[in-house]
Write a protein that binds this DNA or RNA. Structure first.
Lengths: 183, 183
DNA sequence: TGGTGAACCGGAAAGCCCTTCCGCTTCACC
DNA sequence: GGTGAAGCGGAAGGGCTTTCCGGTTCACCA
């Protein structure tokens, strides 16, 4: 695939990913770039060369978890009746979005910095959720006219932190939304 | 109440409000301060003296509409059966939140600049919505355990602009959420 | 009417942050 | 071990918010 040209570049990239994983978890997706580069022991220029858009960094950090969540869709639909599979997957997805501080905001904010993250995220999740929705629709267990992106957006929005409410508050709201999907 | 000490100060305050009304409508709640001061023909210092927090300015601009929305609660509950009154008021509230560009974001964002706006907003709306919820609950038309702030937050969140979706998209999501309130 | 102090103004300055850019360093390969 | 290019770091530039203070303008009183 990519021929890693120089060992030091490779090392720096690793250090950046490592630092980003920690900083993003601690300070959220919008942490200042300098915080990451300081921890990684590199200059900001290095960060921007490896990850021209902030999205690229976030994608690299979250890639694994995003993929795992997407993969869970097939498993659930094989093991559960349609409506249950849908509900369980949405809760799984909610967990992903709600846990990573700032991910929810990044997914909806209008600013361009996170656009590629949004694209990656939704392109990964939409087919999975579409299949679940279709199965539920065939079983008559969901109101018609609901698209995958509607749910993806709604959950991302509802999971944004609300000042003054305990974390995990978004999950309660998602449950109400889920109930609203009944026919 | 406040004795307007100097006529020029009064004039500037008026010009700022006027300008803010236009700019906030055009460029959203997060428009640069300079855009407002330029249009008002004053220096930034003047803006900050009159409105130390951004919230103060936004509150001043929206006060009237917020009050009107709150007042609609009593009218609706007098004229409609409980569940309908609740649904209609939530749609009214949705309209307010969704129409003012950036208001939805300001209501949920964690940053301190808008804190007073949130407080004002929710303190004004909560009692109204609480009354509607209680009436609906007595009629058995709403699931138990729902608090006013839950709905206020959920709507504010769902109305945030989603890139790539038409404006008013949030209203569809709110409708699903509303359906989820059924017992 | 004209003088005076306080209220008020404007914009320069300081502080953050992101992003670009380029001279210097370090590597890989011959 | 010499050399060209890949890669580095941080200074510089630009945007924004917020503070601060010298200068201006007003209101009031004589």
């Amino acid at each position: 695939m990519s021929s890693p040209r120089r060992a030091d570049a490779q090392r720096n990239l690793g250090a950046l990913l490592e630092a980003a994983k920690i900083v993003l978890a601690e300070s959220g997706v919008d942490a200042p770039a300098k915080e990451i580069t300081d921890r990684a022991g590199v200059g900001v220029g290095t960060l921007y060369r490896h990850f021209p858009q902030r999205s690229d960094l976030v994608i690299a950090v979250l890639e694994h978890e995003i993929d795992a969540c997407a993969a869970a869709g097939a498993q659930l639909s094989a093991a559960q009746p349609p409506a249950a599979a849908l509900a369980m997957w949405v809760r799984r997805y909610t967990e992903l979005v709600a846990t990573k501080a700032g991910l929810a905001s990044a997914l909806q904010a209008g600013d361009a910095a996170h656009q590629r993250l949004r694209v990656y995220f939704y392109e990964r999740m939409s087919p999975v959720l579409d299949a679940l929705i279709e199965a539920a629709a065939r079983a008559g267990e969901i109101r018609p006219g609901v698209r995958a992106v509607d749910i993806l957006h709604a959950v991302a929005l509802l999971c944004q932190p609300v000042p003054g409410e305990e974390p995990g508050y978004g999950r309660r709201l998602v449950d109400v939304f889920l109930a609203g999907l009944r026919p």
